[in-house]
């Protein structure tokens, strides 16, 4: 059993942050890795990326958006409540090293993960340009935290209610046009967004890492539900990823698979409400 020791509602309660006591995982987890959790005995297993950790206090932070039955159930939990199972860390850590100037592009809840990886890149001595986006002002998360360590930070909203109006790809393109010292783009967010980012950076021939988050069950490489095609080969996101070279990922396939499951997720949520 794993206790929730802190709960914070973000983005008007649609995005929630939990600190969960998990000393073994906190000791091990590196930026980019995730955990699989199961709330109770009848629950499903869902992957959630670790957004932060404190190995001395022995907890990990997760940030999730309420999209389905399990995340809706999790929102109803409070400090002191227990989560039945938390297993991890899963996946390979992000490949963090000192390479120079980096653009970190995040959208939606992806910013939660981006923030953990971006901090690591900064600590490794890189010049970090952050670009984070959200649908509107209310849905924007972790701006302050990102601003705390990014060398430059640009915020976009789809509706212009805050920061620049438009998509994260607009300022990214501008940077790519203006600067020739950018060594790496690292992006996390909705699949469509990552796809766009990759299409653009491919033209500029700049290495782009994406962090994928497909449907998972076990998270240990056992089910193959998380499979993605990378470089024409089947890869299991939970053990071979979650980070891949974005220019080699077959996004069309991934989008199709994902849209199917989103449909399922909605049905499952409806079922639970009924």
């Amino acid at each position: 059993m794993f206790q929730i020791i802190k709960k914070e509602e973000m983005a008007k309660g649609t995005i929630i942050r939990f600190d969960i006591a998990a000393p073994n995982i906190a000791k091990k987890v590196k930026p980019g890795q995730f955990v699989i959790l199961r709330v109770n005995d009848t629950g499903e297993r869902i992957p959630l990326t670790v957004a932060d950790k404190d190995e001395f206090a022995g907890f990990i932070t997760i940030i999730f958006q309420v999209v389905g039955k399990t995340t809706a159930l999790m929102r109803s939990l409070n400090v002191g409540d227990m989560i039945k199972d938390v297993a991890g860390p899963m996946g390979k850590p992000a490949d963090v090293e000192k390479i120079g100037t980096i653009i970190m592009v995040g959208g939606g809840t992806g910013v939660a993960i981006l923030h953990h990886v971006a901090k690591a890149f900064k600590d490794a001595g890189n010049y970090v340009i952050g670009i984070i986006g959200a649908r509107d002002k209310d849905m924007l998360i972790l701006e302050k935290e990102m601003a705390g360590f990014c060398d430059e930070l640009v915020v976009t909203t789809d509706d212009g209610s805050y920061g620049l109006q438009g998509f994260v790809t607009d300022p990214m393109k501008k940077y790519l046009d203006e600067r020739d010292d950018i060594k790496l783009i690292y992006t996390i967010g909705p699949i469509k967004m990552m796809h766009f980012v990759c299409k653009i950076t491919e033209k500029y021939k700049i290495k782009t890492m994406v962090s994928l988050n497909p449907v998972m069950i076990d998270g240990t490489g056992m089910c193959g539900g998380c499979r993605v095609t990378v470089d024409d080969k089947i890869q299991f996101c939970c053990v071979d990823g979650p980070d891949f070279d974005g220019h080699k990922v077959d996004f069309d396939e991934l989008e199709k698979r994902n849209s199917l499951y989103q449909q399922d997720e909605k049905e499952s949520l409806l079922f639970s409400i009924r």
Binding site: I217, D218, T220, G221, M222, C223, G224, G225, R227, T229, I234, F236, D250, E253, K256, R257, L260, Y261
Partner: peptide
């Protein structure tokens, strides 16, 4: 426990499962 696929066209499609995923 690592399931094999056959590398066929369309294996990525929805409702195509490995036996492990289905049974799990």
């Amino acid at each position: 426990g690592l399931p094999w696929f056959m590398d066929l066209e369309g294996e990525y499609l929805g409702n195509v499962f490995s036996s492990n995923e289905y049974l799990t």
